[in-house]
Every structure is written in structure tokens, then in C-alpha cells.
């Protein structure tokens, strides 16, 4: 069954048209990767799916689990199961990571009509995942994304993802600014989440990430839409020849 179905999507920022007749279908339990040169619209796509109000949708449809995603607010999308791991996680001074995660989980439980987790279960749920990603208690007491290194921020994004258990995860250039060890930790954090009902969309420039998180399908995106779709050999070909042939 299709988890996410994007049809003929057009989106712009100000006067600049970025997504042009973009279509993509992601089945349940699959991992898709989108590769493309700078400025091809990859980050716009992830922002549009998450509901960033800075982007204006001018045409097209996006269905998530059969529901009209474009009619939902960003928090509704999140609580329906969409998760965007940010390329540049936003700093929020004065709000501790633990408070933030507690509020996020409580919001989801409320949306789903479930009882909120008590403090004990919350801590347990958090600790297990934090340990696997090398996130310490001290880090969780600090304000959200303030004063963390690039690698720590990406580990914390991965922690949020594991903690909130979304059905669809978009990883926007998860590999940018990561050293090899951090990339391995983050990739393990993603791979452990792969299961039959959960899908992923990896946005990346490099083949390296796709060696660690093996995708089922690879798309090449140029100038606002997908120009080629294939299996993982596509990434290898790209590594050799670059994007020159697509422009």
C-alpha cells in the first residue's frame, strides 16, 4: 500500500518556482533516496511535506495514508506520523531537550486519544534510545540544539525520531557535517528502525550514506522534479559520472 503519494506537485518561495510537476509514490516499508545537485529542490520537498509555511503550494496533491496532507497543520502531519530530521536543527534557548521531548510525546498521545506516559515510563523510553545513540543525561538537560556540535545535533535528531516512532521519516542531508564515526552511529539508529510499516526518504548528495542505509529505490532529482528512478546501482553510476548528463 502507498504510504505517501505525491502527484504533480508545484511549490514556490516568493516568486521562485522550485518544485515543478513533482510526483513520487512511497510504499509502506520501503526506503527511498533522492539525490540531486544543489538547488534541485530536495530540501524544498522535505519542507513542503512537513508543512513549512514559507513555501506556497501552487498545484498538485499529497496523500499520506490516503489523507490529504496539504490540508493539515505541521503538528497534525507530525502526529499522523510524518517526521522530518532537519539538515540544520533549530536552536531553542531556554527549553531543555527533556522538556521538549516530553511535550512532543504528550502532544502525540493527546492527538491519538491515548493516555500520556507517566514520568517513569517516559524516562525509560528515552534512556534506552539515548544510550544507543551515545546521548548522555547531561545533553538532555541542555537547551534544544544550543551549543551542540554538528554530530551531536544529528544524533539528537535521530533520537527524536526513534523516540516519537513515526511511520514516515525524511532525513534531509543527515550525512552533512558528520564524521565517519558519527555517520555510523546515526545510520545504525536509522537501520534499527526499519520495519514493515515504516518508510524512509533519504535526501543526500553522496553515495556514502547509501552504503550504510541501503535504499530500495533511488531517484535523481533535477530542476524540481524526478528525472530518473532506479535501484542502488544508480548511485554508483552517479558517483562516477556526476549530474552532468541530466542537466
Amino acid at each position: 500500500m502507498a504510504l505517501l503519494e505525491i502527484k504533480n506537485l508545484c511549490a514556490r518561495v516568493g516568486e521562485k518556482q522550485i518544485l515543478k510537476d513533482f510526483s513520487l509514490c512511497i510504499e509502506e516499508g520501503t526506503v527511498h533516496a533522492i539525490m540531486g545537485p544543489n538547488g534541485s529542490g530536495k530540501s524544498t520537498l522535505s519542507n513542503v511535506i512537513a508543512g513549512n509555511p514559507a513555501y506556497e503550494i501552487t498545484a498538485g496533491t499529497v496523500l499520506f495514508k490516503g489523507k490529504d496532507l496539504l490540508k493539515m497543520t505541521p503538528d497534525e502531519r507530525a502526529n499522523e506520523g510524518v517526521f522530518l530530521a532537519f539538515q540544520y536543527p533549530v536552536e531553542i534557548p531556554g527549553v531543555s531537550y527533556a522538556t521538549f521531548l516530553k511535550q512532543a510525546l504528550a502532544s502525540k498521545m493527546k492527538y491519538l486519544g491515548e493516555k500520556p506516559l507517566d514520568a517513569m515510563h517516559f524516562i525509560k523510553r528515552l534512556k534506552v534510545r539515548a544510550q544507543a545513540l551515545g546521548v548522555t543525561d547531561e545533553m538532555l538537560k541542555r537547551p534544544v540544539n544550543v551549543g551542540f556540535s554538528g554530530g551531536e545535533k544529528k544524533r539528537l535528531e535521530t533520537l527524536q525520531m526513534g523516540f516519537l516512532e513515526p511511520d514516515f521519516c525524511i532525513l534531509d542531508e543527515m550525512d552533512s557535517g558528520l564524521d565517519i564515526d558519527a555517520l555510523k552511529i546515526v545510520s545504525d539508529g536509522v537501520n534499527i528502525m526499519r520495519e514493515a510499516r515504516r518508510s524512509f526518504l533519504l535526501i543526500t548528495h553522496y553515495q556514502r550514506l547509501l552504503e550504510l542505509i541501503e535504499p530500495d529505490v533511488i531517484h535523481i532529482m533535477v530542476d524540481g522534479h524526478i528525472v530518473e528512478t532506479g535501484d542502488k546501482t544508480l548511485a554508483l553510476r552517479l558517483e562516477e559520472k556526476g549530474y552532468a548528463g541530466y542537466r
Binding site: 503538528d75 532537519f86 531553542i92 522538556t99 521538549f100 502532544s107 527524536q160 516519537l164
Partner: peptide
């Protein structure tokens, strides 16, 4: 926007930012 992408509704997100 960041707080909302984590499922936190507008009113709650505002409250968190003001407290911060």
C-alpha cells in the same frame, strides 16, 4: 515550525518559546 514538526500545536509551541 521546528516545534510543530514534532507534533506540538501552535498554542503549546508559543507557550514553550515564551517560557524559554
Amino acid at each position: 515550525f521546528y516545534l510543530k514538526t514534532r507534533g506540538i500545536p501552535q498554542a503549546e509551541a508559543q507557550k514553550m518559546l515564551i517560557q524559554g
